[in-house]
Design a protein around this nucleic acid. Structure first.
Ligand code: MN
Ligand code: MN
Ligand code: MN
Ligand code: MN
Lengths: 215, 215
DNA sequence: TCACAAAGTTAGACATATCTAACAAATAAA
DNA sequence: TTTATTTGTTAGATATGTCTAACTTTGTGA
């Protein structure tokens, strides 16, 4: 079983692997706020444990066992977020940080009970899928708001980034999962998008549109 | 803020200090399953942090700050136990082990919310008091079942030891907090006690009577 | 193709938490 | 009051996770 620190590395590797096929040591270091030698050393240790395929100067790759470990941690993370939100009444902007800690609890029954009390949810409060106990993700094919064209009407389904700063921004704009947006126009200069919803009409910057998944 | 490991030492020191005024390095080691040099070294480190008063060859003593830290961890532990039992539906024999992990969660709001959802409880599922946020324990003056005399009628108020093995024993005997026992007789040879409750009549060994607090 | 910047690795150090073996102090027994 | 036992400390080692400084590869741009 990985230590808490190794769990964070495995999770980071999994997330980086989603964004981009080739995971660099530098990116891993950046993601976790550690130096390159630290990330490199850890990659070797994870290889020794059989969770990573490490070769000098080559991109990092999670092994199948590593992916399973990562999925288990992500499952705990997302169940925790759902539990904090649905059972304990925390706002969706507050749950990620607490889940960063709860995901490391070893007790399996603790999370099994959460799952049960929540009625076996399939997504977390930010719309991300909760993998099953075997580590399988049911991948939804949502697209980025930034990839939609003028005239489309889309529903917000998930967030790419669950930082509380971003969610507080959405709260201020009264945007949540399920909000239906009409794309009125797209500014060619900075890729910002003018949308209407709930009778409001506002401009969303590219940085915002790149963080919203819609259908 | 103490590391998770130091938190366990502080909690152990607090508990040992309740049982007995003089805390020895050996007892600390035994409590945590570490060697004497390890316990001794850690005592020095805790002294350096201002949480313990350490003097060579003298009994260990928690400082006021150390007591406050310990109380905070015990508060988190007992709130967790109450939450696991009342909100998540776990049996009182299962909660201690999970609380050993949950007590190290840093987020204060997590525990504040537990407290609120539970209606600000004052005891945990084993009858032990939950200290307030200032670290004050409201000490109840219960006595050991082993200290009662023939003919007395007492109510079970708390357990000295919350190991799941002991609680499973109590479950099998249908003994819980609130159960009223009548002390029928005391065996002088082995200090076992014959009690009656709920129409049953059984003998409780000294080891059991030393673990039950009654009023 | 060669030079240079970016990315990655090695070397050496430090902090934390642990151990065993050996020694010293305190306490209990003779 | 010696001796013996228990208790506690030192010394030296190991494992984990981190750093900076220096060096080596890799890949790009001239
Ligand atoms: Mn999250
Ligand atoms: Mn984490
Ligand atoms: Mn407990
Ligand atoms: Mn603990």
């Amino acid at each position: 079983m990985p230590t808490e620190i190794k769990e964070n590395y495995l999770k980071a590797l999994f997330h980086l692997g989603q964004k981009c096929e080739k995971i660099s040591v530098s990116d891993l270091g950046k993601e976790l706020g550690v130096s390159k030698p630290t990330a490199s050393d850890m990659a070797k240790k994870l290889d020794a444990k059989g969770w990573v395929h490490y070769q000098k100067y080559k991109p990092l790759r999670l092994s199948d066992e590593g992916k399973k470990q990562a999925a288990s941690i992500i499952r705990k993370h997302r169940l925790s977020e759902m539990f904090l939100s649905q059972i304990m009444g925390f706002g969706w902007e507050a749950v990620h940080e607490m889940a960063e800690e709860l995901e490391h609890i070893k007790s399996e029954t603790f999370f099994d009970r959460m799952d049960e009390l929540l009625g076996f949810p399939t997504t977390d409060p930010h719309g991300s899928p909760i993998p099953d106990k075997q580590g399988c993700f049911k991948d939804s094919n949502y697209s980025l708001l930034s990839a939609t064209s003028k005239g489309e009407e889309v529903t917000i389904k998930a967030l790419i980034n669950s930082s509380s700063e971003f969610i507080v921004f959405l709260n201020n704009k009264k945007i949540k999962l399920g909000t239906v947006l009409k794309v009125l126009s797209k500014e060619p200069f900075d890729q910002s998008i003018l949308v209407s919803y709930n009778g409001k009409k506002i401009t969303l910057s590219q940085s915002v549109c790149n963080r919203l998944l819609v259908e």
